[in-house]
């Protein structure tokens, strides 16, 4: 497997009236071609901000630390994403090598332009295509994602489609430029379970067919278990645990990951009490010292958690965790 995108020491703060707010803190990961990485965490854990950084899409008040580095490997060699400045330079990543699908498909389509015109527009932006050719590709793509009567849908507006259909159209649009990496930001959260199951199936088929890398952002570990090869768990901007999906779900090491799994309602045991992760996620303005999770951690060891930032420890193969419970050398 060759690396598709490498993220190293990504730290990102937002300049606000109340001071610098840390959204992403020293995050590193690699995604290979054809690999699906799940990114899990609560609201406010910096999942979306991390994903947007890959396309340099964050708002103007974003400040990247000098150590931050994002390298995208393309056919024409590696691209240093964070050094790209102008819209022209950024076209390589935005909608070119990287596409993104969003949680709310209704908000992502322009309401007064037909689905077809929007698809054609972006195809023509990224390639030297005639309108007829672009339309042919778009209709084919709509057909590919399971939209019936694609030629008719091509001329419809977003409001004329149902929720599941819109999300399919969104996926078709994102994939029509043949991206190397697809960022799916909570693509199934707004959908019914039945439609969610269909969209998950569709995405799995597409990975096999197009052999692209996917970052799947969600707070639903069930969805991750069904789609991802590996998973990174985020809390307050830091990756606290990362590893192959089987390892992390069956053998979670970080108390936060364990908490997330315990909080899920399980169908095989209806009597099991629901155990929430105690407490509320701290405000990003009041980041805890030491381990960021120590204010809610049920397994806190002592002062070391409050004062010292735990660094990554290799558990087993590519499974790593950042927790003082695992940094101590066993006697």
């Amino acid at each position: 497997m060759s690396a598709l995108i490498e993220v190293k020491n990504l730290t990102l703060k937002f300049r606000t009236d109340e001071g610098l707010v840390t959204a992403v803190d020293d995050v590193s990961f690699t995604i290979d071609k054809g690999q699906v990485m799940g990114l899990v965490g609560e609201s406010g854990s910096g999942k979306s901000v991390t994903a947007k950084a890959l396309m340099h899409l964050n708002a103007k008040n974003a400040v990247y630390s000098p150590e931050s580095k994002i390298t995208l490997h393309t056919e024409n060699g590696p691209v240093d994403v964070l050094s790209l400045k102008t819209a022209r330079e950024l076209k390589v990543v935005r909608g070119g090598a990287i596409s993104m699908i969003f949680q709310e498909p209704m908000a992502s389509f322009a309401p007064a332009i037909t689905i077809g015109d929007q698809m054609v527009e972006q195809l023509q932006l990224h390639g030297d295509l005639s309108k007829a050719k672009a339309k042919a590709i778009s209709v084919e793509m709509l057909d590919r994602v399971g939209i019936s009567d694609p030629a008719r849908r091509f001329d419809q507006y977003a409001f004329e489609l149902s929720g599941g259909m819109r999300q399919r159209a969104m996926i078709a649009m994102a994939l029509s430029t043949k991206p190397k990496l697809l960022i799916a930001d909570e693509p199934t959260t707004a959908l019914d379970v039945t439609i969610q199951a269909q969209v998950i199936d569709l995405m799995k088929d597409l990975v096999t067919e197009f052999h692209m890398g996917i970052i799947f952002i969600t707070h639903d570990l069930g969805v991750i278990a069904q789609t991802a090869d590996k998973v990174a768990v985020k809390y307050l901007g830091r990756i606290v645990e990362e590893g192959p999906v089987r390892e992390v779900i069956r053998n979670p090491k970080h108390p936060y990951t364990q908490g997330l799994l315990a909080a899920l309602p399980k169908l095989d045991d209806l009597d099991a009490p629901l155990t929430p992760v105690a407490g509320d996620i701290p405000s990003p303005l009041e980041r805890p010292s030491g381990c960021v999770f120590h204010t809610r951690c049920p397994k806190i060891i002592g002062d070391v958690c409050k004062s010292k930032l735990p660094h990554d420890t290799q558990v087993d193969g590519s499974h790593r965790v950042a927790c003082h419970l695992h940094t101590e050398v066993p006697a």
Binding site: V193, Q196, A197, I200, G222, A225, Q226, I249, L264, K266
Partner: peptide, 12 residues
């Protein structure tokens, strides 16, 4: 059936 299973080996 549509509820995603937490078991990574129980896909589809």
């Amino acid at each position: 059936s549509a509820i995603p299973s937490l078991d990574p080996d129980d896909r589809g």
